[in-house]
Design a protein around this nucleic acid. Structure first.
Lengths: 172, 172
DNA sequence: ATATTTATGTGGTCACTGTTAACATGACGC
DNA sequence: GCGTCATGTTAACAGTGACCACATAAATAT
């Protein structure tokens, strides 16, 4: 996990990992079928942590603040574990349908789906997609360093401001 | 470019590329300093195409529909060139400050920044970030196959619906 | 027309990667 | 004590980016 965060999924090498651990290059294959398999279990524990954080944000907030707090938790998780977050959403892993990964991902997103019901009236699915896109987009842009950070700016406050912003439609 | 779209930035190999072109493995180094340098020029032409599309969307739309149409163009570009889009936003390239890349990126995003002025009143920066996050998040989630597509659903219409949705704040 | 520089390509080398096969070792249950 | 199994080892294969010294063809200068 440390190595994933330090080097990214592509930079994580089984040989280098084995070297750090102090074993031979082939040793990791006694524990994981392949590098992909290692990444899969990393992603799964990522989903579990994510799930826990989202669940806590849900429990510890009054109903009317839940969505905002969960959005904040979503972005915070991404900022705290950039490469893990990227791995969790990478299509490469999703590609070869690993059932364990799929289950962990579904479990994690169920927490999100549950909040959909609390959204304002109208087309629930569209509103949910919009909220998700907003939060996910903010996370990804911050992660990739696309959003210029003004010096001394409180990032958490900025996130809260974006989520609380009342700007609605971008114009039909 | 074809190979980038087919294999992704990581899967694009200089040797395999040379093999396809029919030259030796070292030949590409007569044209590009490194693989990163190749990816850089790919990203630059990506920014140029992106810029063109956004400019067209701006010109061809009445002022009140501009933001929505540009948002749609943004997502369309991502869906039409997934791996190029990913490359353009990848932090790896951004890491080693290539001036050419930075210029192309700035030029492309200037078109976006210009629209900020047309946003509703309030904190312009926050509103702009929100709009950007929304559009970018939608693009990324679609790209990564995270948004389940209902059969027969018109994706363009779905995108338009999300962008037009009037849901404002997620709750302060 | 000749000489020279430049662009492009070649084969070979190095250090790295994921992966597999064949083989060793040591702990645990019967 | 014996066999099984988890875990390790070494050696090898094929692929990669990067780089080198060297060849050749084209463009340019004299």
């Amino acid at each position: 996990m440390d190595m994933l965060e330090a080097e990214g999924a592509a930079g994580l090498g089984l040989r280098e990992l084995a070297r750090l651990v102090g074993v031979s290059a082939a040793a990791p294959y006694r524990h994981f079928d392949s590098k992909t398999s290692l990444l899969e279990t990393l992603a799964i524990t990522g989903y579990q942590r994510f799930s826990t954080m989202m669940g806590e944000a849900e429990r510890d907030s009054p109903p009317e603040r839940r969505i905002a707090m969960m959005g904040q938790a979503y972005v915070n998780f991404a900022l705290a574990n950039p490469n893990l977050f990227r791995l969790m959403f990478s299509p490469e892993l999703k590609r070869d349908n690993r059932p364990g990964l799929r289950m962990a991902a579904d479990a994690a997103f169920d927490t999100l789906r549950a909040v959909t019901a609390a959204l304002p009236e109208g087309d629930k699915r569209i509103a949910a997609l919009k909220a998700w896109a907003q939060v996910h987009g903010l996370a990804v842009l911050l992660l990739d360093g696309q959003i210029a950070r003004r010096d001394g700016e409180d990032i958490e406050a900025m996130i809260a401001a974006v989520l609380a912003d009342k700007t609605g439609s971008l114009g039909a």
